[in-house]
Design a protein around this nucleic acid. Structure first.
Lengths: 152, 152
DNA sequence: TTTCCTTCGGTACACCGATGAGCATGGTAA
DNA sequence: TTACCATGCTCATCGGTGTACCGAAGGAAA
């Protein structure tokens, strides 16, 4: 992990469709050296894979919701049941077990409030062992995901 | 947006490095038809771009933190100042203005607790107009980001 | 210092895959 | 029916990817 690798990771997080030759020029290396480094970053697991960034607005997904979940019990069984149920619903994009007031944080997308209401009734209300939910609707994105910071 | 486009979006969110020929076979279309659809999805803005998925563990970023921020004032000036300051720090990956008890939700990554402490002192403590912070450390990821759900 | 070895970048090139032209087909409206 | 549009397929071309080989730089040991 030197400055070349760091530069490659930054560029590929921004745009992975760039040709290796262009990437090489941008970081100041020959095509083959750059190519070799990219393959090494892939095989070492530094790069997990490549994804298309889909525009949620274009899909009609205008509503983003964060839900803090509190369970009635922190027993192994209760948590297993909850975590298993979370996997079932595609509308739940992310779920994290956390410290703090809540037990879990969910990230959800929906088309609109009516759609979220449906998700709430059809998915969230069916999650087992939930004692409390605190819902936060996203009003505006101040800073959106642009990859992890790479030092160097 | 028919079932072919939906299928393409799902596949490209999973793996955008797939060859067009393979993608075409997977969705049941010829290479050129598939290629044309992909280009159309790009130019229409449905696909925003392509990114490498970097493994945060491999970068030594083991700690993920969610911070709920409350401002002292919801005036335009206070919010503008806060939002501007948020842009300055690379360690703040995401920031969303929300309804609910907090005003903003921040998502932050750090190497470890000591590193987070440094970020807290050097970045978070300098954000203007903040009256309260509620920190949640991620203990475990139950469901991690795998793209938006595409209907059809 | 010399030699060997390892590591890493550069050059050249074969070949695979992206790209686009041209044609076929089916659905729709005049 | 005819014209037209949308969309699929085949095929040829060209650029980029991936690789083999060479050379330079740096370190270790005699």
């Amino acid at each position: 992990m030197d400055r070349f690798d760091a530069h490659i990771l930054r560029e590929l997080q921004r745009d992975s469709h760039i040709a290796v030759a262009d990437l090489a020029e941008r970081i100041g290396l020959s095509t083959s050296a750059c190519h070799r480094r990219v393959k090494l970053l892939e095989s070492s697991g530094m790069i997990d894979g490549y994804s298309a960034r889909v525009n949620p607005k274009a899909l009609g997904l205008d509503l983003e919701v964060f839900v803090d979940i509190t369970l009635t019990s922190q027993s192994q069984e209760a948590m297993d049941a909850f975590e298993k149920a979370v996997q079932l619903y595609d509308e739940i994009l992310e779920c994290v077990l956390t410290t703090g007031t809540a037990d879990y944080i969910l990230r959800i997308v929906a088309r609109d409030v009516a759609h979220y209401d449906m998700i709430h009734r059809r998915c969230l209300a069916r999650l087992p062992g939930v004692s409390g939910m605190q819902t936060s609707f996203a009003l505006r994105s101040i800073k959106s995901w642009r990859g992890y910071p790479v030092p160097g």
